[in-house]
Every structure is written in C-alpha cells, then in structure tokens.
C-alpha cells in the first residue's frame, strides 16, 4: 500500500535519512521506534508530503506522492488545534474542501467526535480542553476526511502515563473501527509493541532502518504476558545493537 524505497534526505551536509525502505500493507499498523535524531519524524514528514526535498521513491497505492493530501491524515506531537475555533470547528476545517453537502459534513463530524469520545464538548475552545482531550480532537480532525493512512508523530508523547494508556486503547479501537493503515512514530518501545503489527527500528548517523520486527501477538494484548516481554526485549535488543556497533563517541574529557 505505502512503499518507501531508497529514500535519502539531506539537510545541507547532514544526512537525516539514508537509503531508507519501509512497507506498510493495507490496514496495517506499523510503529517506528528509535532514539531522537534517527530521522523517524523526518521520514513521517516526507510521507505526509510536508517535505518534498528527497531522493528516492514514496508511493501510495502505486502512485508517487506529491505534496499533502487528505488521503494521508497526520497527527502531530502537540494537538495543534486552532485556539480561536471551537472543537467542532477545528474538526470541520479538515472538511472545508471536501465535496460533501453541509448536512453530510455535519453527520461525519458528529460521528467522528463520538468515535473519539468527545460528544458534549463540541463548543469548547481548545484552551478549555485537557491534553488528552485535545489530542483526541486532533485525531478526529485527521480522520474526518477518511484518509487511507494515518500518520502519528509521537502523538501521546506529552501525555501522562494513565491518559497515555487509555489513548493507546482508543487508538486500537479506532484502528479496528476505521480499518485505516497507521504509522506511529514513537520512542516508547512498549507502546510500539502494544499497538503495532510490525515494529521498525531506526538508528541515527545517518538515519536508517536497522530492523523490522513482526508483532504477531493476539488481541487483546497483555502488557504483562511473557510473549509481550520477549518481543519488547527483542526491540530493545535491536535498538541496543544498532547503537553498540558504532565506535564510541567521546562526549567530554575530564
């Protein structure tokens, strides 16, 4: 469905991504993990079409991507709601150019708000929403145009542990309900193993993919099961290996 082949992205002399490959199947949930600076956000921005200055190929359903489209929804690290619009209006903005009647839009927006559990808060301004609620609204905004793939850039990174766990469950529920492919960028290994069907491990200097680990655990997943632990260890191992082969960099001398 989504294919990234041999993609390299340079910022001047700095190579953020080198010869990167990634495949996401129809309806698949893929997580990308890696230390900060490994190019995972860069990769996501390339897939979103926000950044078009790369070498290589990115195809969605066999067609090379050009710029942004509503077919690829994106949720940023912070909710990025427009503070002057109510929750409803914030989600409605995504349908400004959709070829739908006003009544149809209304119906779709209401359904999307219900899906993320924010019914009753339609008229609230973002300043009045909690971090978790705001991020749910951002997810609803990304989904309301019915994209075929949803790109999530550490969307839960800034939330507290409890809200985070709850939203992870919600993401799974939404994923099953909508049947949409998802790419989740995260630095949380447990989150990656809990949510995804495939974990892509990346490493830095320059950013590249070091491992693809298939997560074939049945749903619902139990974070405390031994299989879960084994997979977590495997991902940690891949993260560790990739950083261990590098020569030790001296950060400072005493």
């Amino acid at each position: 469905m989504l294919e990234v082949r041999g993609v390299t992205r340079r910022f001047g002399d700095f190579v953020a991504l080198r010869d990167t490959n990634l495949f996401v199947g129809e309806g698949e949930f893929v997580a990308i993990v890696g230390a900060s600076g490994c190019g995972k956000t860069t990769l996501l921005r390339l897939i979103a079409g926000l950044d078009q200055d790369y070498v290589g190929e990115i195809d969605l359903r066999g067609r090379r991507i050009v710029g942004t489209t509503l077919e690829r929804g994106i949720v940023f690290q912070e909710p990025r709601l427009l503070p002057w619009l109510s929750l409803w209006e914030n989600i409605a903005v995504a349908l400004d150019n959709a070829p739908l009647s006003a009544a149809a839009k209304k119906e779709v927006i209401a359904a999307q708000i219900a899906l993320v559990g924010l019914t009753g808060f339609e008229d609230a301004y973002p300043a009045a929403l909690s971090g978790g609620m705001a991020q749910r609204a951002a997810i609803a905004r990304a989904l309301v145009g019915h994209p075929s793939i949803l790109l999530l850039d550490e969307p839960l990174g800034a939330l507290d542990a409890i809200t985070r766990m709850r939203l992870q469950e919600e993401l799974l529920r939404i994923w099953r309900h909508e049947g949409v492919s998802m790419i989740l960028v995260t630095h949380d290994v447990e989150e990656a193993v809990f949510l995804s069907q495939k974990v892509v491990v990346m490493d830095s200097h320059p950013g590249h993919v070091t491992a693809n680990i298939v997560v074939d655990l049945p749903a619902p997943r139990d974070r405390s099961s031994s299989d879960f632990g084994v997979l977590k260890r495997e991902v940690f191992g891949a993260l560790h290996d990739s950083s261990a082969v590098k020569p030790v960099e001296i950060e400072y001398l005493i």
Binding site: L50, T68, L70, R80, L82, A94, D96
Partner: peptide, 27 residues
C-alpha cells in the same frame, strides 16, 4: 509556523489560510 504547516496538511487554499488561520491569529 506550525499552524501554516497544519493548513498545508489540511489542504487549505490561500484564502482559507487567511480566513481560518492568519486573520484570527493576528486579531
């Protein structure tokens, strides 16, 4: 700039960018 990027991701036209984002932001 994040809001400009958001407008890009939502495929807003320049006019929509002005009405929805820039004008309220500078009001």
């Amino acid at each position: 700039h994040n809001f400009i990027e958001l407008a890009q991701a939502l495929k807003l036209s320049k006019w929509q960018l002005i009405c929805r984002v820039i004008f309220p932001a500078i009001l």
